[in-house]
């Protein structure tokens, strides 16, 4: 407040003048001067007051604008996040669809975990190499070698899957499971049965099948994939908390495997969505 300085100085000056002159006439004149100075100080104060009032009102206006600008920024960021999450979701959906189509054609991409590579069906290896989609591709469990004859239903189910006849394929997998409850392909059949539901959006049923793979075949090479898909279904069903826990488990227990990478990505998606 520079303005406050000089009236104070002026008053001091006037006082000094007043003290220095002893004559009555001089005093009267000094008093006039003093009064005038006082008035001018008052006017200045008045001005300061008015300035302050206006400054306060403007400060309030400025604050309002600041808040509005911040809100605008927040709303825009929010929208960006929402759009990004949506974009990623649709990208994943497209990938999953493509993959399901590839799987359905009897086409088996890279193994879920390296130690299971030996179990790969002959002839699938070349396709798997060709079909290796970079990084974020859902895992494709490979088929273990199984005794001929017991896998007729299974083969047919895979065939139907290839024709996108999910219901029929599911029925065939179920028939295989009834005929070979302890068969070498039981875990796989159960997993694929889950997939037939998943692809049709029947997450409740899909989740039940994936959960059975996890509980009934803990040593199966389908464990990681089944757990991952279980996490997906839980998320689709809106149970974010359980889904997060399941995917967390995949990430920790199967570190390095594709399933773990996919779990990590899905977890990030869930987090982005919840913000």
């Amino acid at each position: 407040m520079k303005r406050t300085d000089w009236p104070v100085m002026a008053v001091a000056l006037a006082l000094a003048v007043a003290l220095a002159s002893p004559a009555d006439a001089q005093r009267r004149r000094d008093r006039d001067v003093l009064e005038e100075l006082e008035t001018r100080v008052g006017v200045l104060e008045q001005q300061i007051r008015a300035d302050n009032v206006v400054a306060l009102i403007n400060a309030q206006d400025e604050l309002r604008r600041e808040i509005q600008a911040l809100r605008d920024a927040v709303e825009r960021l929010d929208e960006d996040l929402r759009r990004n999450a949506e974009l990623r979701r649709s990208q994943f959906a497209a990938l999953e669809e493509r993959l399901a189509a590839m799987e359905a054609r009897g086409f088996t991409p890279a193994p879920a975990s390296p130690q299971d590579a030996t179990g790969q069906a002959p002839g699938d290896a070349a396709d798997a190499a060709d079909g290796a989609v970079p990084g974020d591709q859902p895992p494709e469990p490979e088929e273990p070698a199984i005794a001929a004859g017991s896998q007729e239903n299974y083969e047919q189910a895979r065939e139907l899957l290839g024709q996108a006849q999910y219901q029929a394929a599911g029925a065939e997998f179920l028939r295989y499971l009834e005929a070979n409850p302890g068969g070498g392909l039981a875990a796989n059949a159960r997993y694929w049965l889950g997939e037939t539901f998943y692809v049709q959006g029947q997450y409740q049923e899909a989740g039940a099948e994936f959960a059975r793979v996890v509980s009934d075949y803990p040593d199966s090479n389908k464990l990681a994939d089944a757990l991952l898909k279980l996490g997906y279904t839980q998320d689709e069903l809106g149970d974010t908390e359980t889904a997060t826990a399941t995917l967390e488990r995949v990430r920790q227990d199967f570190a390095g495997a594709d399933a773990a990478n996919l779990a990590t990505i899905r977890l990030a998606q869930i987090e982005a969505r919840s913000r």
């Binding site: 407040m1 009064e35 008035t39 104060e45 400054a55």
Partner: peptide
């Protein structure tokens, strides 16, 4: 905000005060 406290007191006074026009 350094709103001078004394202005409230001053205002009525200075309204009645004389001003050398």
């Amino acid at each position: 905000m350094n709103f001078p406290r004394n202005t409230r007191v001053c205002l009525p006074i200075l309204l009645s005060v004389v001003l050398a026009a």
